[in-house]
Amino acid sequence: MTAVIRVELVKLVRRPRSWVSLALLCGLPVVVAVFVAVTHLAPPPGQGPALLSAVLSSGSLYPAAALAIVLPIFLPVAVAVVAGDSIAGEAGAGMLRYLVARPVGRARLLGAKLIALVVYVLVAVVLVAATAYVTGTLLFGSQPATVSNGGPSGGLSTSSVAATSLSGGGLTPAEVLIRTAGAIAFIGVSMLGVGAIALFLSTVTDSALGAALGALAALITSEVLVTLGAAASVNPYLPTRYWLAWVDFFRQPILWRNIDRGFAVQAVYVAVFLGAAWAHFATKDITS
């Protein structure tokens, strides 16, 4: 098993696309930071990415703000592309038949692809946070952070965070670090939910692009339904419903309600779609 995982990681590392996507993910928050630092025009509370309005006072919050910047589109797109490519990409390159005939057991191959995906998601999220920390402390300084103590985050809207004043208690650097780690874990798991959907679609089609776009279509559908009052009955089960709950890590005290629900929803999505991916891939005729 370890050999297959190592091979998948080597493939990921030697793929130029991995590096380009990581560079883009890390680059966007840097660009935003430069604009904000030069103009000192943070978006007013309630608008723009969560926490961005708070970073002018402390650069140590910028990792969280950076995650908020890449979370809505950039990160899910990158994850969907990598996950959608995992099986369908091998099929498209004509390598799937050679891997399975080598033999690499189908379950092993899927497992190794999943682990490579998890590694990619973690590296992406941690790298975004790390470069943002460097950018933030360089451009905004590293005074003790102040955080909001507003109500729970509501769905996609972050207004409840940003709308409150920044009058909350200060956070020590250690607290910021721990809370950022919590946010990274939460976002990582949320992205794994996207990845699981794309991985399942990747076993269904031989087109990597189709699998990635299918997963993104699912996310867009979810985001539309989350804001739709008429869809309130399915609201708590939508994959993107609790995506922004990680902002609650930066409240004093931490609001666990939506964080817990977010973890639970993603766990269900990951389990269901990985199960479906395994069931489909194990029994499928490989004709590519």
Binding site: A3, V4, R6, V7, V10, K11, R14, R15, P16, A93, G94, M95, R97, Y98, L99, R102, P103, V104
Partner: peptide, 21 residues
């Protein structure tokens, strides 16, 4: 035949060999 086009022939063989048991 199939291979990963962006890698060399030797690397391709090494990967396919390492992937199987």
């Amino acid at each position: 035949p199939s291979s990963y086009g962006h890698l060399s022939g030797r690397t391709n063989l090494a990967l396919i060999d390492a992937a199987g048991r």
